[in-house]
Write a protein that binds this DNA or RNA. Structure first.
Ligand code: NAD
Ligand code: NAD
Lengths: 207, 207
DNA sequence: TATTTAATGTGAAAATATTAACAATGTTCA
DNA sequence: TGAACATTGTTAATATTTTCACATTAAATA
């Protein structure tokens, strides 16, 4: 199970989201083609992904929802769980904290940080916001491993440096500023404009 | 130029973002390896993408930033431009509107919609917010082609239906509810949790 | 000017990712 | 029960994406 394709990881996360919804609805089993339809991919793709993670069922009533969730958790989660922090408690930062809160048991947004003294030392969207000057201290105290950057674009580079120096191992960058980090830090970047432009391109093609 | 790989489209959008920053800084030419480094990919990849869109330069001083921006615009943009609307003017909706405003000339967030009567008929983040009951009328009036869904997850399905019925051709779904749309509508979905879980997985691997 | 250097463009190879095809086998129901 | 059916797991084929390797040529330099 050592070398899963990056794409598969992304899909596993998506499957789990769907499976958790099924679980909440009391659905105990799900067919590969059901999962496939919900994710707009083929059933073979789903079966292959599931094969890769080593889960299988002898049943012909589909996969056991609960069991599959557990196997995916084995892949993605760590036993102790991981703590993340949001840097920049503005509109987007708050939306992310609110959204995320309580969604996963092994992944927590444990703190936020902001330079704005109005925000620092308050609880924002249910999570304590610390002043940026406390970054190193709090990252160590709360064992924060992942930083989510939602500061203005011009501050992204310096914030990323601070995060790396504080010992963080993964960064999720939502600003439009491209970042660079050392080899031993994993970086993921997302820009809504790219998503929207993809939609625009395909809308144009369909016309 | 009819069949560009989907991946290339995403990268072209990203290149343009970087090129616009270069332009603003007064940088007139850029090497393939510079673009590559900024985007954490190889220079060959950049050259191949640029080859695919039919741009080339005889110069050995890199690509002409302005010219390349124009070629990418030819691919992604339409002459008249496209209008989008945000459905659900909450935290995320507002963050998106604020972020997007004025970033692109051919892609505009022309309206937002909300059921909350407090929000409807006000200007939120610089864009007028309409009541949901006006959806059909305004979509036609303002020629809105793309809908960005940022309502609570339980409302996503019905909102998507309304959007499709109103004649929209592309949907960008930010809720955690998987949607289904007719063939002639392009759907893009994004869930932050998946991004964060990818980071978590790779942080775990590196340990 | 002649030589060296460094950049692009691209065919071919390699690597990744997806899909087709089908054997194996529970499940359904006549 | 047993034939028909449906679903999984997986190998092989296909398709897509990325990278290699290098010919070509502008630019820099001696
Ligand atoms: N990727 C996307 O899809 C997307 C979408 C929307 C917004 N954005 C980007 O996300 C970022 C945040 O957007 P927003 O609308 O929340 O902005 P905002 O202005 O509401 O919030 C930014 C916050 O960062 C704080 N801040 C400023 N400098 C800081 C620093 N050096 N260290 C710590 N905190 C600092 C501010 O006090 C503020 O609270 C922006 O860069 C925006 O462009 C990205
Ligand atoms: N994909 C992601 O990365 C991501 C991140 C954060 C939040 N989210 C999701 O985005 C959505 C919005 O999050 P938020 O924090 O902005 O929530 P929010 O509660 O602040 O905003 C939701 C808005 O939608 C409005 N609304 C409710 N029902 C509606 C309907 N039927 N039609 C039109 N408008 C309606 C509400 O009045 C409110 O203004 C949620 O589904 C949330 O889970 C996704």
């Amino acid at each position: 199970m050592n070398k899963l394709p990056e794409k598969t990881i992304g899909r596993l996360s998506e499957y789990r989201r769907t499976l958790l919804i099924c679980l909440a609805k009391g659905k105990t089993h799900i067919f590969s083609h059901e999962l496939a339809n919900l994710h707009h991919i083929t059933a073979v793709q789903v079966r292959r992904d599931i094969m890769l993670i080593g889960y299988s069922t002898t049943l012909k009533k589909g996969y056991d929802v609960k069991a599959l969730i557990d196997v995916i958790a084995q892949i993605i989660d760590t036993d102790e769980g991981l703590n993340a922090a949001v840097i920049g408690a503005g509109n987007l930062g708050r939306a992310i904290i609110t959204y995320f809160n309580g969604k996963r048991t092994k992944l927590r947004i444990a703190a936020s940080f902001d330079v704005d003294t109005e925000k620092a030392n308050r609880v924002i969207a249910g999570v304590k916001c610390y002043p940026m000057t406390d970054l190193n201290k709090i990252v160590k105290e709360l064992n924060i491993r992942i930083g989510i950057i939602t500061v203005p674009p011009e501050d992204a580079v310096s914030v990323a440096e601070n995060l790396v120096n504080s010992g963080i191992k993964g960064i999720l960058n939502y600003t439009s500023t491209p970042l660079s980090v050392p080899q031993n830090v994993y970086l993921e970047e997302y820009d809504m404009i790219t998503s929207l432009e993809k939609v625009a391109y395909f809308v144009k093609q369909k016309k």
